[in-house]
Nucleic acid binder design. Structure first.
Lengths: 342, 342
DNA sequence: GTGAAAGCGCTAACAC
DNA sequence: GTGTTAGCGCTTTCAC
């Protein structure tokens, strides 16, 4: 990395002159125009990029905010990140939590390991990770992160946790289908490069619940090597496949809101009456499910509450680093609508 | 701020001992158990939070990534941030752009000014700002940011720009309605605390286009002091209001995708035939519009392309800081569907 | 086991 | 106008 000293040497001036010019305060130090140009040119030529770390350290009167790394995989629910930032903005401006600075560390599901250097180097005051794939959980279990770390979903003993009770969601849905006298049920879920543990937990709960209730349950999903332009299309294709096979169950639990919109479009388009022919429950939080005809019973994916809880826990941890790992389970309310009455 | 020296003094040991203990390497320096405990306790008691800036500066072998501030208002399109991070992850892992570190600076529309200290202090290697309100534009015009700065939407001479041609979108839609022989048109838009300039530009284009074509155009929007649980509900209420007034236009241009879903639910529920009774064009990128019955003609809000362009521009700027401001206009393709044929 | 001291790259007060 | 120098708070080597 080229520093202001390199430039100073190259141009034949002192480092402070370079500093003044490159941080836009040349006038303040009354550096001559010619020297300014020489310095600017050299900086450009040599590919100088200021080291903000050093700059910040020397800037005395700047507020020093704790830096939190927010590991983020775009395969999360597409609205979640926006919700998270919204809640953060809200809580901070209302003085509910201390100010913090969030840096996004993007990763793909299953490739969290690539962030290992940043995570293990004590580079941040805190870390937030929503590890959704088994592989990432495995990596985290075997990694020694020494700064306060909050997991979403992935229950790993040494770290703090904010999650929902995915397994119970599955069994409760199975229970509802059972009470309604359903004999057969389907479980529809999106394909992904890496099976999400949250989906897997709900799946396990649902299948176990069905088994106990004597409901004949089967999974509907696409091969992971197929690709779709979006979740709507995937839902349509999965639904079409079910119709082709001509073995519609009396109830279906769809694990993803947008997927559900696609699937429902096909079911309704083929004259399947919901809930008479088939009851539908969806996990997610897409507002469209509310105005869908018929309106759709959902288990709410509580992104707002998860965000709030996560931010709260992180803010508390900063002040007591050695604290015992906390476990916070966020509620997932059922919202009963036409597609599956209570 | 309490430093390791404060702790060292309080406990009566050297700063290096404190450093070892607090960064989890006490064993490496063979610090006695008692001293470790004393140091830990003092740190907790005194509310010590490590200064990551200093830590990073002294860590020699860490990769130094340019730090980019991403100013973000949650009032942006809810999927945009996720898309942005997804594209970033993609471009970086494919080696299309250099590695960068993104820090999120949350703000509310109209309150960008509160970020002024962070923006003007040369605290970041680059800054990205999507200023959507007039007030924030005004603030930026009068602010001297010295680091490479990319604006989305807000055209301000001294900064770089990535945007779409909002005005033309408005006029083109008016032109389509005109070609179809519409005599009257409505323009529906979401209420917001701060009128978004992008919405305002499309509005201006549309109204001017209507005026030139002799279309009688009127705006439908809610009072900014009303609040809604979500955009769907807002759309439903706006549509209901139009039905009450019993003056349906022959075409409507809806400025927001989710708002449109709510409004369309009401229109269709009241037997309004689309496009026969009323043509509909929507600006946005919600996938549901594609499977809506009838499917909805949209002008695509190209969040992916905007993100890609923005990241590209920023990466280029880092290497040539003094460059002339660039202007990149991203295409906004029309997708014609049933609600308004070409 | 422990502490002194050098250095990370930069800013800014100050001397010239 | 320009250069010297003392920090910013931390890590890490090395001497004791």
């Amino acid at each position: 990395m080229v520093s202001i000293y390199d430039i100073a040497k190259a141009v034949g001036v002192s480092a402070s002159a370079v500093s003044y010019v490159l941080s836009g305060r040349a006038d303040k130090a009354r550096i001559s125009k010619e020297k300014q140009k020489l310095i600017m040119d050299a900086a450009n030529r040599m590919g100088y990029i200021p080291n903000m770390t050093a700059r910040k350290l020397s800037l005395r009167n700047m507020p020093r905010l704790p830096e939190i790394a927010l590991c983020w995989s775009p395969e999360q629910h597409p609205m979640f990140l926006n919700t998270f930032i919204g809640i953060l903005q809200d809580m901070t401006s209302n003085g509910l939590v201390r100010q913090m600075q969030f840096t996004i560390l993007p990763y793909r599901n299953g490739e969290l390991e690539k962030l290992a250097p940043a995570l293990t180097a004590n580079y941040y005051n805190g870390i937030i990770i929503p590890p959704v794939s088994e592989q990432d959980i495995e990596f985290l279990k075997n990694t020694d992160i020494k700064v306060p770390t909050v997991m979403l979903y992935g229950d790993i003993p040494q770290y703090h946790l904010v999650t929902v009770d995915n397994y119970s969601i599955g069994t409760e849905i199975a229970g509802i289908f059972h009470r309604h006298g359903c004999r057969s049920a389907a479980l529809m879920q999106p394909a992904s490069r890496q099976m999400s543990i949250t989906v897997a937990q709900r799946t396990a709960g649902f299948l176990e619940g069905c088994r106990k209730s004597g409901i004949d349950a089967r999974e509907v999903t696409s091969l992971s090597n197929e690709t779709y332009t979006n979740k709507i299309e995937e839902g349509r294709i999965l639904a079409a496949k079910m119709l082709e096979e001509n073995t519609l169950p009396s109830a279906i639990y769809i694990q993803h809101d947008t997927l559900a919109l696609g699937a429902l479009a096909v079911f309704c388009g083929h004259g399947i009456r919901i809930p008479e022919d088939m009851e539908v429950i969806v996990y997610g939080n897409n507002e469209s499910l509310e105005i869908h005809k018929p309106s759709v019973t959902t288990v709410q994916y509580p992104t707002q509450e998860i965000s709030r809880e996560c931010i709260t826990v992180m803010a508390e941890l900063l002040d007591k680093p050695g604290a015992e790992p906390v476990r916070r389970i966020v509620e997932t309310p059922f919202v009963f609508r036409e597609s599956c009455p209570p």
